[in-house]
Design a protein around this nucleic acid. Structure first.
Lengths: 211, 211
DNA sequence: AATCTTTTTGGTACAACGTACGGGAAAGGG
DNA sequence: CCCTTTCCCGTACGTTGTACCAAAAAGATT
């Protein structure tokens, strides 16, 4: 039987509140005080459930990583990995703060490790060293993150450019032309993701043979 | 002739100091007070040269983007873009804070626009709509950033995983196997970057035809 | 020469942040 | 009934970005 005063909240509540705040008001709104208020607790009470803010973000990542149910692995590694990346993309679009916190983050938590496990299982038939498979999965996820970041900035490149400066001065003729001319819808994610998967795996095989 | 009290410092000095601080102590060490101290000015004096910290980071990005001299465009778009990406990678390794701040940032500044211009010029012979070219360049840069982030975390995947938890519990057999088995050197950047460039451009062409 | 106008300097100050500290509260075990 | 353990959370401190303003330093004007 547990001794001492029983907890009034749970770690899950805290993480859930943090994710909700991040989803609605962005990651910078995830302050200890704000999350505590959302939970209904005092600010310092959070530290019973979480060692610090950085760790809380780790938990947020692992939380949302547990939302989607990964599709069955069929044995067709190319299709299986593609399905995984499509899932990752959907996840990042549902939680726009996710791509931004993924870089360089330590992989902790059951769900995140589960993601990795699933990817490794999907890549198994491709026949590569384990470390190489992990490297590839990291590259894939990074690619998805940067693709989604582009998507979320609403119009990948156009909106991100200080158009006035570019077009006014005559110093950027190609940029000027690219901005003026229209055409060319957005690149479809599944197609380019599929290409990436096949291409990088093939590359890894080549380098394996050569090295 | 300029009226009023003459400035004691320059915007360039401020940005240089900020970049130096970021290079040596990381981006989180780039505080207004710290940069001001480095310059030799009072903290609030920085606001004469820079509207706020976020803008200062924009300027830092544009500053380092002006360091390398882009190689000549030869007309072989595949090789030209590859040279550009190799240059980007070197730049990010020299300034490890760079990959982390690139996501979703507005493209401002002569040097950054120059980068884009150079990429567009290199991609010109590939024959694609301007917007598509810009989207591709964004994807390329994102890929380089995530590759370098993996590199800088010292061992792409291995170090990033909480090994103990994975191997101890029997829940992650594939992960366990991947961690135990050795082999497979790191993927060589130029090779996979080259593959990406060729593959994505080809994909974009296909989608252009279909759409 | 004296004053006015314009611009930069940097000290003071404030709100918001993460979080260390510690006293009080709430439970079970003796 | 008290002791031990655990949790709650108010107070407080150091650090952050930056608003505000008086003082300083220059050219322009009289």
């Amino acid at each position: 039987m547990p001794r001492g005063r029983p907890p009034a909240y749970t770690r899950d509540q805290v993480v859930t509140a943090a994710v909700t705040v991040a989803d609605t008001d962005g990651l910078e709104a995830v302050t200890m005080r704000r999350v505590a208020t959302e939970v209904g607790a005092g600010a310092m009470s959070l530290y019973t459930y979480v060692p610090d803010r950085e760790h809380l973000i780790d938990l947020m990542v692992d939380r949302v990583a547990g939302e989607p149910v990964p599709p069955r692995v069929t044995g067709d590694w190319r299709a299986d990995v593609l399905a995984l990346l499509v899932m990752q993309r959907d996840l990042m679009r549902a939680h726009p703060w996710l791509p931004g916190v993924l870089g360089g983050r330590r992989l902790t938590g059951r769900n995140l490790l589960g993601f990795l496990e699933h990817g490794l299982r999907a890549l198994e038939p491709a026949g590569l060293p384990g470390i190489t498979k992990m490297t590839l999965l990291g590259l894939f996820t990074g690619f998805v993150a940067s693709y989604v970041t582009g998507e979320l900035t609403s119009d990948p490149a156009l909106a991100a450019v200080d158009i006035g400066a570019a077009v006014t001065s005559g110093n950027f003729p190609f940029l000027r032309k690219a901005l003026i001319e229209g055409g060319g819808g957005p690149l479809e994610f599944p197609a380019i993701a599929d290409w990436m998967i096949a291409g990088l795996v093939e590359q890894a095989r080549h380098q394996q043979k050569a090295g």
